[in-house]
Amino acid sequence: MDVERRGDAVWITINRPERLNAYDLEMAKAMIAAVESAADADAVVLTGAGGAFCAGGALDNLGSPDPEALRALFTTSLRLVDALRACPRPVIAAVDGPAAGGGNELVVACDFAIATQRSTFGQTGPKVGSAPVLGATNLMAVQIGEKRAREMAMLCRRYSAEQALDMGLINEVVADDGLEAAVDRWLGEIHRLSPRYLEIVKISANQWWNQSKDNMSSGLGMLIQAIGSEDMIEGANAFLEKRRPDFRGARDAAGEDAR
């Protein structure tokens, strides 16, 4: 992960393009620290390197899960999305490429989102043996409507940048080579505004986020209790092996083994 001060803004770049910028525990902690230390900036920009925004938490160890390590990653992910909302400065998601799973929930958590035309959005939870409880099952319904949010969270469809704009998930779509210029334009507009009153607006506008936090905590507790389940293991292995998961077959096989 790279953190760079560019003028009056802090740019945080998730830099693991070989895994679509999926983050591990240490990266999540580093992002939290970078966001929390940016209170003196005009704004924070969260982006990804190498043609992807973020694929959420890394799935590498879900096929043979370490419960304590996963508990730490899950709970730190909640701290990460909360840090984005608690940051006193506006946070812009600069999206180029896939924003998937927990990466899509980072977009939900940011104040603004600007995306290139080639970007895509969507959740992956039930497809990979998980559930998107850190934004997609609660706050996202406020942003894009309940029916569309359930469609995204439950069916794991992918959506183009133009579709995401129409839904209200993002603020602007730009040409594939125009992302930084568009972000700079937004940063220039923010720079002309009062930091004090922007913070008041942001904290006051967190009403729905604050009401969602209890739901996020309970959903996270359910995810932790499901660590090592047949569905988690089958979903993760299918993802890593690039095949379609067979959740019902895996459950039946587990039942046979138990007998």
Rank of each mutant, 00 (worst) to 15 (best):
P65T: 11
P67S: 10
E68P: 03
A69C: 04
L70G: 06
F74C: 02
R79F: 03
L80Y: 07
V81S: 09
V81P: 05
A83S: 14
R85M: 06
I92E: 03
A93L: 03
A93W: 02
D96W: 01
G97M: 05
P98E: 06
G101T: 05
G101Q: 05
G101Y: 01
G101E: 00
G103F: 03
N104T: 10
L106W: 02
L106K: 09
V108Y: 02
C110A: 15
D111I: 08
A113Y: 07
Q117S: 14
Q117L: 10
Q117I: 00
S119Q: 08
F121N: 02
G122S: 05
G122V: 07
Q123L: 14
V128W: 05
V128E: 02
V128A: 06
A131V: 09
V133F: 04
G135P: 00
A136R: 05
L139W: 05
M140W: 00
A141V: 10
A141T: 12
V142E: 14
G145V: 12
E146L: 13
A149M: 03
R150V: 11
M152Y: 06
C156N: 15
R157S: 04
R158A: 12
E162S: 14
Q163I: 09
Q163P: 01
A164W: 05
L165C: 11
D166R: 15
D166H: 12
M167K: 11
G168R: 08
L169N: 07
A175N: 11
G178C: 12
E180T: 15
E180W: 11
R185S: 13
G188M: 04
E189Q: 12
L193W: 04
R196W: 00
R196T: 14
E199Y: 07
E199W: 08
V201A: 15
N206Q: 10
Q207C: 07
W208D: 15
W209K: 03
N210W: 02
